[in-house]
Write a protein that binds this DNA or RNA. Structure first.
Lengths: 337, 337
DNA sequence: CCATTTTACGGGAACATTCCCAATGTAACT
DNA sequence: AGTTACATTGGGAATGTTCCCGTAAAATGG
């Protein structure tokens, strides 16, 4: 099958017009007679004409496309952020190219290349847990392509960021455990490369400090977010001479995994060990027992990030460079604590 | 900030070469001297040169981009299918544009327009529950742009489809309930517009027939997949003179919602009422009690669909038009039945 | 040393569209 | 009637890249 695209030239020839005139009709330019307008419109409809955005983008040096790069796609977190972002983007007439890096630095680099090659007008990025070098992202800055980080941000770069108050969320979560009379609270932390890990850890430490509970470094376990390893760490914690009576996990999948392991051992939650997570994954209220967790306004994260990006694209305001939007979290207390 | 893209002409001018030569280096064409090759490569690197895919796509009439249109993004089902599809696509050098239709026909139509305008080489589509008119999809056929349906397919169009054996899956699920000694099995069905609803309903009916259990139409409730309505239907079922002792739901979110309502009423699952879902959502094994469900090979659905699409793009083999790949389901028996 | 082949590079068209500038035609006004 | 104004339309450049074709210089062969 020979595939020939219907172009404005085809329409022009059939109507004995110039491509300029046809273009004018299709773009809604005023100076064109009603008669020709109608003729063009009808023929275009009949021929299934679709404007070729590639050529327009090439000409305008603007693709009306934004890129979104996320580290993973499994939990409900990023899909929902994406929904929020896409909503705003679509409203403003922007398409979206979504890439997930699978938590691999190399894939992330490849993804940024892809975005550049496809001439995106801006990118929304959440980093992988492996990312420690940011050269591939600084290219965007050098080229003047707006970039906005969300959730997993790069603190070395002075570009807009959208995060939640991880510190406060963690603080409140741990405070809640303390008020439930828990004395030895363990923390399954994330890798230090991620600011969210660091901030949540700080929240954990400060909450303990405030209530004058000594911080036992043995109870703080940073890990690389590979879910299969949770079992090792939880088992390790339970076999300590002085085991914890609560676990605060860096995120919900980790908390849920921990919870399952604990229950398989025949321990009671929350009586023997309480568990608290972070993010309020959509699973969390469905499991048994429902998980206490710090909820994030996921859709709002996506929409504010997209809004910030598009504002930057339209009017490039450089004072905005260092804007950081910190959204509120909310502690949702359920039966696991 | 004035944004000027680095082009091959810029590189050519700085080195006193023609754009042809630079292009040759960048595309790896052999007939170019080692000296100039090196010079070009170095300068390109230094200037952060990135080839502009828009112009290449325009020239080749091929964008190396495939589109994926899914009805929703909330459950883990479609994200996982997308991961499977993207893996294959990336392997074959294709980018991906993802759109979700939010279960709205209008949005789906808009999404197809977007795909066409962006010159995708092919599309992967799963329909919304509202879609009853397929003109917007037939455009792809007319233009000779390959299209592959998955999960929610359009049976009117003779294009490749990837589905699971819904009939068999449903049959086995209901058979399993019968063997658990359930006599009055209700079915929360999907809308008739979706072939998956129809097939699963047929499986349900035939399983009952096989074991000579009369089909009570009162126990078959088709609904529009709006989760909030599940409560009404479940309450209705429970208040029947002769209430059901099992529910087979069209999908896992529905089953989970039903399960929660049933438990809130103080009924025991599975003793009073057993519940079975469909799709093995990643939540299903985490809830209490874990849900018996029919699992689908999600990633494989995505990868086979993508493979089918790309094969069609590369060599356009028209006999393939009516190919239907039916993947196997597996009944996963858990505590809810 | 000349003829022929090879090697390396330049010129220009093509892709689909928009937009500026010019050109044509018509109506209105003096 | 002649001039001006305005309404429509056409022509051509430009966007960044590839690829075909042509051509000069260098290398090879006798």
């Amino acid at each position: 099958m020979k595939r020939h695209q219907v172009t404005i030239v085809d329409i022009a020839q059939q109507l004995n017009l110039s491509k300029s005139t046809v273009s004018r009709v299709l773009t809604g330019h005023p100076s064109v007679s009603e008669k020709t307008r109608k003729a063009v419109m009808e023929l275009a409809e009949k021929m299934d004409y679709q404007r070729n955005m590639l050529s327009i983008s090439l000409l305008n040096k603007k693709s009306n496309t934004i890129g979104i790069i996320v580290p993973e796609f499994m939990s409900s977190y990023f899909p929902q952020v994406i929904i929020g972002a896409q909503e705003i983007a679509a409203q403003e007439g922007y398409n979206t190219i979504i890439c997930h890096s699978n938590e691999h630095y190399e894939t992330e680099v490849a993804n940024t290349k892809l975005m550049l090659a496809n001439q995106v007008d801006g990118v929304l990025v959440s980093l992988t847990k492996e990312t420690r070098n940011f050269d591939h992202l600084k290219v965007f800055e050098r080229k003047g392509i707006p970039i906005v980080f969300f959730n997993r941000v790069c603190e070395d770069m002075s570009v807009p960021k959208v995060v939640v108050d991880d510190y406060e969320g963690a603080f409140r979560a741990v405070e809640h455990l303390i008020k439930r009379n828990k004395k030895r609270i363990a923390h399954l932390a994330g890798p230090d490369s991620l600011p969210i890990s660091v901030k949540r850890l700080r929240g954990y430490r400060d909450a303990l400090k405030k209530y004058e509970i000594p911080v036992d470094e043995e109870l703080i376990i940073p890990y690389d977010l590979t879910l299969t390893k949770v079992k090792i760490y939880v088992n390790h914690l339970l076999q300590l001479d002085n085991p914890p009576d609560a676990i605060f996990a860096i995120n919900d999948p980790t908390a849920i995994e921990a919870l399952r392991i604990i229950r398989k051992k025949g321990l009671r939650v929350p009586e023997d060990i309480a568990v608290v997570g972070f993010s309020n994954d959509y699973v969390s209220e469905l499991i048994d027992p429902p998980l206490t967790t710090v909820s994030q306004p996921v859709k709002e994260i996506g929409s504010t990030a997209a809004r910030l990006l598009i504002d930057q694209i339209n009017r490039d305001i450089s004072e905005w460079k260092s804007i950081i939007r910190v959204l509120k979290t909310e502690l949702i207390i359920r039966k696991s604590s």
